[in-house]
């Protein structure tokens, strides 16, 4: 860093701290022994983890979120991959428009999606139902799958498929043994994105939740607005741990296969 002058270094350090601190601060706070958000904590304890993992409200919210995110991951990955194949492999009228439409949930402010979905769900009787959550989160998660799978397909060498076909492989066998293994990293990172999107989603969920069916982020949101309860810090730490593990997992797996 010899060529970087000190004001530049100072700004860079400030930005780095700005970006990192909010992620890290919840971890020490979750080990506090007081019923306050005072930071740094005066004493340490595990009582808020104990509460998080024994309180039925928090636990059910965690289970709801995990279950929902898993279903959404499967549905969104399947739909998104299929859509990517259609978009990359075939030329049809309106492909551009369709792509734009499928990407729209990323661009349109979430609050608008939220009330639009809410208005529709009220009419269809889907508010507060698991099916409603799956439907809404799938809409939000699918674009991320499409982005990753599309880019994997674009860099894919189609001569490999032709080679397989010329060697007598059926289209299905080619897909299973040639194409899918090669685009698997793209599909996998799309799946991780889909999981995280659903697991972390709060705005749409706030509208379509019911007291009987809440997700973890919704529970956290109402926790922050209504009470001073460090259990939220424990919940945040758990969420951060889960998402970090998920994102690091594919990279670790890849590294291991490289060594093998």
């Amino acid at each position: 860093m010899s060529r970087v002058s000190w004001p530049l270094r100072a700004v860079t350090a400030l930005v780095a701290v700005w970006l990192v601190v909010p992620t890290l601060i919840v971890i020490p706070l979750s080990f506090t022994d007081r019923a306050s958000f005072a930071f740094p904590p005066k004493g340490w304890s595990l009582r808020y983890y104990e509460r998080f993992f024994t309180d039925s409200g928090w636990l059910i919210a965690l289970f709801n979120s995990a279950q929902l995110a898993l279903i959404v991951t499967v549905v969104a990955t399947a739909l998104g991959s299929a859509a990517s194949f259609a978009l990359v492999r075939s030329r049809f009228r309106g492909a551009g428009a369709l792509n734009g439409l499928l990407m729209a949930p990323i661009v349109v402010p979430t609050i608008i999606v939220a009330i639009a979905v809410y208005a529709t769900f009220l009419r269809w009787g889907l508010v507060g139902t698991a099916a409603g959550f799956v439907l809404a989160h799938t809409v939000l998660a699918t674009p991320y799958v499409i982005v990753t799978v599309t880019s994997a397909l674009r860099t894919f060498d189609r001569r490999l498929e032709r080679a397989a076909a010329s060697l007598g492989a059926t289209p299905w066998a080619t897909l299973r043994h040639v194409t899918l293994p090669l685009i698997l990293p793209g599909v996998a990172s799309g799946a991780v994105f889909a999981f995280v999107t659903s697991f972390d989603e709060v705005v749409v969920s706030l509208f379509i939740q019911s007291p009987e069916l809440q997700t973890l982020p919704v529970r956290m949101f109402s926790g922050v607005t209504n009470e001073v309860d460090p259990t939220i810090a424990a919940a945040s730490t758990v969420v951060v741990a889960i998402t970090t593990a998920l994102i690091l997992l594919p990279q670790l797996l890849r590294r291991n296969t490289d060594h093998a």
């Binding site: 706070l29 709060v202 922050v224 945040s236 951060v240 970090t244």
Partner: peptide, 16 residues
């Protein structure tokens, strides 16, 4: 920040 939960981060700012 892309990895970490929006709720967790917003809560962290409430504390900070």
């Amino acid at each position: 920040p892309f990895w970490t939960s929006l709720m967790a981060r917003t809560f962290a700012w409430v504390v900070l």
